[in-house]
Nucleic acid binder design. Structure first.
Lengths: 402, 402
DNA sequence: ACCCACAATTTGATCGATCAAACCCCGATT
DNA sequence: AATCGGGGTTTGATCGATCAAATTGTGGGT
């Protein structure tokens, strides 16, 4: 097999020097157009492709992003990581980046991997998922000044003040807007007794999603009593069976409900089983995550728009157009984060999608100041959605045959 | 920030030469033990880690495996790729390998990616998934003599004679044994009218799974009429709704059934919905893939044992113990493939697991010669399983409350 | 005492690219 | 006319490791 062509070969064929070839590839704008063309033809002719490892050795960059595969026993929502990975890989490729994977038993082991990957110039940056408050990994990466973005905002006591720090790069899905969207959809269908089935209080994500339901309820029914809202909201752990039992119990206890917004698809699936069983085949249930299961059983769900998340992650790492990872703490992005507004997917089809313009940052649930702003936002969206009812619930066929 | 230590630094500290350090790391057995220890201490002291890119440049290997993320709209079984990826990454790490991802719009684009990844010494080998018969990718990789293993045996006309070729490396799950296992389980519970709900004839995988059900039925009920088997087997496309309709129709048509073995979890989920709705809450349904959904709704399912698949892939690529990719067509493995026997998972818990010893190769469905062997196999397993009934169906609670 | 075989280690060259600095050429400046 | 400046290009050095060949050391055989 013939040797692969190198810059040297291209240079010889084009009658220029190594460096000029290199320039044509990396900074074409500084090469005289006619020389450039000559080199480009030579490249094509020989089928030259730069040797990635040689380049990395010299430049100490790899155009590669590392991401750890989540080791947790993933349930029904497991496909999320998969979808995100896909979106990230695809958009990374568009910008000349690749994604490499690794696994880790525990945070300490994970940090070792970071070190090893960085030292070998194997990756330029990391993407962190399933971060927890005061995550040791974040501490370490920040201290070492290794570029990274986390998918998931810094919740929790210490994280709370990091949310605004433009040096802490993160992307998250605006769960609050998502559940608000789902709730508005139900309100638009003329329902009033819309419940929320969430996780036990204390999880940032869960509380955020509950808040979105509250936003929409208050917006849709001005003056609704806090007591009524409290009555309509109840909780369960993240498991189909548990959710099912919770709904069964509340229905048995005489809770009047017309529809249910759920904190996740697992919970929604359990809820759906319970209401069907209670003889209410058309009772609308909304899930969250738009997992394959939801699509399969025809559950409406909030879609996280992981495509958008992936591009946002790259924007933060590389800048809007760049093809090189920005140094850690460069402050290149004025915000340092992106909050992606989810869309609503009815029985697997997207019915509503937010506009393309950059989403306004939304404060964490702990801060209450921008409330009025948000309310307006909700109202505007509510109006915008008119006339696009989704047929999910009519299409649903889980009912008992007569 | 201090420069990272290099071989040079370690050598100086240990009072030896570069090359000796290199030898300690790569071929420790040729270094005198006391020298080796001295170097090892120096390595620890400096926290030295070889620079991956430099090594790659020199050796033209990367200790990296490339895999394409499946672009197909994955349904309920989507998590399989995810789980496989996880297993592969984890076991690859144990052997000092990493996994990098890429995506591709079409086979042509995918081949371009192969070229680019190989030419840049970015990957040493590829793992192919969702292969089709006469896959152009396989042709190309083989022609270029790039090492690869496919997950999924070469089905189809042309593939059929590749199955035995030890130069074509592949790993697959023995679907036939899997459905046989599920069927035996039901037979063991004293059921007889056990149906099979499969995909339309013609898909290698689907036909194989159907055959496993046939094997077990014939073994369990010697002399069962072919007509009865034909009656018990029917088909549907891979979708929850379609499966549901198919089962509803057959039940309405008066098909007598006591249990159902299904070709996939999606299909099983549909079937389960249909039988529950028909008022038979304890009707056992067996799925295939052991997806999160199956676990969530308490469906028993055949588990593909992707861990085993991943280690098998690596065995084929690297040899039983090696840490370097074997050249394409080295014939290092006498078989050139592995057929992994799945296990049975009842309501999310594994009840039966095959012995650890290497699985005997199983012929593709097109060849019929080893039949008697297989029959024995089935019988032996059948006996081995005695006394380990799984409680899945008793635990199942999808029934209507009285 | 000499030579040889062999194990252990060292030395010089190399992988393919980019960086930093030097170079060349030509028009504008003084 | 000599100098300057700068765009465009070339040259030499370098990144950090491994390969291939050379070197040193050690003991055995004759």
């Amino acid at each position: 097999m013939a040797q692969l062509p190198t810059v040297e070969d291209v240079a010889r064929l084009a009658g220029v020097s190594r460096q000029t070839v290199s320039n044509v590839i990396n900074t074409p704008e500084i090469v005289r157009p006619e020389t450039r063309e000559r080199v480009e033809t030579a490249v094509r002719e020989l089928g030259y492709r730069p040797h990635a490892s040689a380049r990395r050795l010299r430049t100490r960059t790899s155009s590669t992003i590392g991401i750890r595969l989540d080791p947790l026993p993933r349930g029904i929502s497991g496909a999320i990581q998969d979808r995100f990975l896909h979106a990230l890989t695809e958009h990374a490729a568009e910008r000349g980046f690749r994604v490499t994977l690794f696994t880790a038993r525990d945070p300490q082991h994970e940090i070792e991997q970071y070190r090893s990957l960085r030292d070998g110039a194997d990756v330029d940056a990391f993407v962190l998922t399933s971060t927890v408050s005061d995550d040791p990994r974040i501490e370490w990466l920040a201290r070492e000044r290794i570029p990274f973005v986390s998918f998931g905002r810094p919740w929790g006591a210490m994280g709370a003040h990091d949310v605004g720090d433009p040096e802490r790069l993160w992307v998250d899905v605006d769960g609050r807007a998502g559940t608000a969207l789902a709730t508005q959809h139900l309100i638009g269908r003329g329902l009033r007794r819309i419940g929320f089935l969430g996780w036990p209080e204390g999880s940032g994500t869960g509380d955020d999603r509950r808040a979105g339901w509250g936003d929409a309820m208050r917006a849709g029914f001005p003056g609704i009593a806090d007591a009524e809202l409290a009555e309509l909201s109840f909780e369960t752990v993240e498991a189909v069976a548990a959710a099912r039992v919770a709904v069964e119990r509340h229905l048995a206890d005489g809770l009047e409900l017309e529809a249910l917004v759920c904190v996740s698809d697992s919970v929604a699936l359990g809820a759906m089983m319970a209401v069907r069983e209670a003889g209410r085949p058309h009772f609308p249930v909304m899930g969250f995550d738009n997992t394959p299961v939801a699509q399969a059983v025809g559950l409406s769900s909030v879609d996280q728009r992981l495509d958008e998340v992936a591009t946002s992650v790259l924007d933060l790492l590389l800048g809007a157009t760049g093809r090189r990872v920005l140094p850690h703490g460069s402050g290149a992005d004025p915000l340092g984060h992106r909050l992606v507004t989810p869309s609503l997917s009815c029985a697997g089809r997207v019915t509503w999608r937010p506009s393309r313009k950059p989403t306004a940052p939304r404060p964490a649930i702990t801060s209450e100041k921008r409330k009025s702003n948000e309310q307006e936002d909700v109202d505007r969206r509510h109006r915008a959605r008119r006339g696009r009812r989704c047929r999910a619930h009519r299409m649903f066929r889980w009912r008992r045959r007569k």
